[in-house]
Write a protein that binds this DNA or RNA. Structure first.
Lengths: 163, 163
DNA sequence: GCGGTTTATTTCGCGTACGAAACTTCCTTG
DNA sequence: CAAGGAAGTTTCGTACGCGAAATAAACCGC
């Protein structure tokens, strides 16, 4: 451990990491809990809410939206199709692409779940003053850009899991 | 989308979320990449580094350390034991508990991997001024506490995945 | 010292999550 | 228009990750 004297930057850095991990995992947990009420999983809720907004998405578009690999989303859609929540339709213009849309059953469930999972955070961020919010954004962006620079050289996969 | 006029708090909030998600997933990616050089997975690296520091840990202690459920860690240790990286030893004082420690092979690999995965972040945070770091910590803590208050009523599971 | 509760770990079933390889369709270029 | 490459999706194998139930040992009160 470093010295504890109010200038303990390493300790602060660690605490910042802790906070980020906490916020992220808590977000996942909230999404999951919200989903469970409708007998869904976290990623499935994300899919349903995405499709509700946009109407119809190709598998790749959906993958980008929920930040997961195509091969992962294939499995998620398999299970949702099995449950009758969505259907796959092959596009007529480009027969390589699969369009995914909600069934009536899927749309009904989407309507039942009122809020976006993120809204808990929007609300939590709401207690900050506008200046604090912008400071937070500015500093986080600075750090993120630094990490990005540091790791950009070399290809990067695109994501992992639910929002 | 809301109006884009510099007072777009909802947009700022969303950007903050994006940044948090980016930093978290990037952290996982870096850990994974670091681990891959030693033919390990992310969680396995976390286990090895934990055991290197402490020497010997019960399964439950290890679970807390890497923020995962016991049932998850059982599987991780199974695979690592199969690879000869760690061994299980039943405690003599309390025969319910399993102590896990590195084999010589595991210890050698731990020595080969120089840095903690977190160090990339420590470095990224290093470009902030001390004031910025403390602002960041203060604001994040405020948000985290707010989320905590909002969700505390009701039991919470303890974690999910690698650091 | 016996029955009941608590604690530590494992087992089981399911759902992500990823990367590499296979497949199909589309597009380019000679 | 044929060959080759690129793009969209699926398949396969492996590793988490969780919660509920099972198992085993320790503890507690009487």
């Amino acid at each position: 451990m470093a010295a504890q004297n109010g200038k303990d930057l390493a300790g602060d850095a660690e605490a910042v990491l802790e906070a980020i991990i906490y916020l992220y995992t808590e977000g996942r947990r909230i999404t999951k809990e919200l989903a469970r009420k409708a007998e869904l999983t976290g990623p499935q809720l994300a899919v349903i809410k995405g499709l509700e907004q946009i109407g119809k998405l190709s598998l790749t578009e959906l993958s980008e939206r929920i930040r997961a690999q195509n091969s992962t989303v294939t499995g998620i859609i398999d299970r949702m199709e099995r449950e009758g929540l969505v259907v796959r339709e092959r596009s007529t213009e480009d027969r390589r692409v699969i369009q995914i849309r909600l069934t009536e059953k899927g749309a009904a469930i989407a309507r039942e779940i009122p809020v976006e999972p993120m809204e808990v955070f929007q609300e939590a961020l709401g207690i900050l003053s506008p200046a604090e919010t912008r400071d937070l954004l500015r500093i986080l962006t600075k750090v993120a850009n630094r990490v990005r620079e540091r790791t950009e050289p070399g290809p990067r996969p695109k994501g992992n899991q639910e929002p």
